[in-house]
Computed example of a mutant assay.
Amino acid sequence: MSEEDAGRMSRYTTAYEAMSAKERRRVTLVEYRCRLRGCLLLAVWTGPEGGLVYQPSSRHSPLRNTGQSAAEARAERGASRFPSSTRSIDDPYRWVAPGEAPMSLVTDGDSTSVSCDHVRRALSRAQVVEDVSTARAGHPTTRRISA
């Protein structure tokens, strides 16, 4: 991802987080939430460039994080923090096999991991694309994910 693309996606993250709940509902297509407490794990929303995937910040235990992230990333952001991020749903950079991307968010080919204190799961890009294909902005589809 180029520096320009990274900056643009960072601005989309800031814009999404600054929206009120009503504004988010107008642009959100699909939300993936924890079944236990309703924690937001991933949201797909309509942005200026089409489908955008927002992943909120999360924390993991240092032991779990050590096994799932690069030392450089841990040093940059802290031992157990994953900052929120936004990416295009069409961006293959974030939907790749382990070892091929510098982010630990990927878990296996064509999927991304989503997590909160209660859930840690792989979510396939194919499932996200299928859910988006039947969703409408203003009437978001909510998928509950179990541990």
Rank of each mutant, 00 (worst) to 15 (best):
R87L: 09
A137Q: 13
P98W: 12
I145Y: 04
I89A: 14
S80Q: 13
E130Q: 07
S113T: 07
L63K: 15
P98Y: 06
R144L: 04
L36G: 05
W95C: 05
A70Y: 11
A135L: 08
A73H: 06
L52H: 01
S10H: 05
I145F: 15
S2Y: 12
V106R: 09
T28P: 00
R120Q: 15
L63M: 15
A6R: 04
S57E: 14
D90I: 07
G138L: 08
T86D: 12
E100W: 14
G67F: 15
L105P: 01
D110L: 12
C39I: 05
V119T: 10
G7F: 08
S115D: 08
V106F: 02
S104F: 11
V44L: 01
A137L: 07
P98V: 00
S58T: 04
S58Q: 02
E23W: 13
T86N: 01
K22M: 09
G50D: 06
S124A: 10
D110G: 14
E130R: 10
G47S: 15
T13W: 00
T112F: 05
L105G: 13
T141G: 03
D108F: 14
F82I: 05
S113K: 08
E17P: 09
T13Y: 00
D5I: 04
S115E: 07
P98H: 09
S2I: 01
R11N: 13
Y12T: 05
S104K: 10
K22C: 06
R143D: 00
M1L: 11
E76C: 11
I145R: 02
S115H: 01
D110P: 12
R136P: 02
R11T: 07
L41G: 06
M1E: 13
S146D: 03
V128Y: 01
P83I: 07
T112P: 02
A126V: 14
S85P: 02
R26W: 01
R59Y: 10
S61E: 13
E76A: 13
A6N: 13
Y32D: 07
E31S: 10
S10R: 04
E4S: 11
F82G: 04
S57M: 09
E49G: 12
A126M: 12
R143Q: 10
T107S: 05
S113D: 12
C116A: 09
G78C: 12
E31A: 08
A137K: 11
R120G: 04
T28G: 11
Y93W: 06
T141Y: 09
M103W: 03
A21I: 02
A70V: 14
H60Y: 14
E72W: 14
G47N: 02
S84K: 06
R74F: 04
T66Q: 13
C116N: 00
A75K: 12
T112V: 12
G47H: 02
P140V: 05
A101L: 05
K22T: 08
R59C: 09
T112D: 08
Y32R: 02
M19H: 10
Q68S: 04
V106I: 15
L63H: 10
V27E: 07
C39M: 11
L42Q: 12
L42G: 02
P92Q: 06
P83C: 01
R25L: 07
R26I: 00
G78W: 14
A147T: 03
